[in-house]
Computed example of a mutant assay.
Amino acid sequence: MLRFTGEIAGAGTTSGVRLVVGRWRESPFGAFADVMLQDATGHRTLLAPTDEVAEFVSATYVFDEVVVGPVVAEVGSGGWRVRAADLLDVALEVGGRMPLGWVLRIPPARLATSPLWAAALDPVARVVLRGVRTRGSAAGGRSEWYGAVDQHRVAGLRGTWRGSDLGALAPVDPPCSFGFSSTPTTPSVTSVTTTIRL
Score class of each variant (00 low, 15 high):
124 V>S: 03
21 V>A: 08
105 R>E: 14
63 F>C: 02
91 A>E: 14
113 T>L: 00
149 V>G: 03
90 V>Q: 11
65 E>I: 06
46 L>V: 07
39 D>N: 13
152 H>T: 08
88 L>E: 06
130 R>W: 10
48 A>Y: 07
52 E>V: 15
109 A>R: 14
132 V>G: 10
35 V>D: 02
82 V>Q: 02
30 G>W: 12
10 G>D: 07
90 V>Y: 11
49 P>W: 05
69 G>I: 06
61 Y>I: 05
59 A>C: 08
13 T>R: 02
33 A>R: 04
94 V>F: 07
122 D>N: 15
135 R>G: 00
153 R>H: 12
43 H>M: 09
70 P>S: 13
10 G>K: 01
86 D>T: 04
137 S>W: 13
87 L>S: 13
145 W>Y: 12
101 G>Y: 04
70 P>T: 13
38 Q>E: 15
31 A>E: 15
119 A>C: 01
41 T>N: 06
88 L>Q: 05
47 L>D: 03
58 S>K: 02
90 V>W: 12
74 E>A: 15
140 G>S: 11
137 S>I: 10
34 D>G: 11
72 V>F: 06
141 G>F: 11
46 L>Y: 05
90 V>K: 10
42 G>D: 10
55 E>Y: 11
130 R>N: 11
37 L>F: 06
57 V>I: 15
119 A>H: 00
66 V>I: 08
137 S>H: 13
78 G>M: 12
52 E>M: 12
40 A>K: 04
103 V>C: 06
79 G>K: 07
61 Y>H: 13
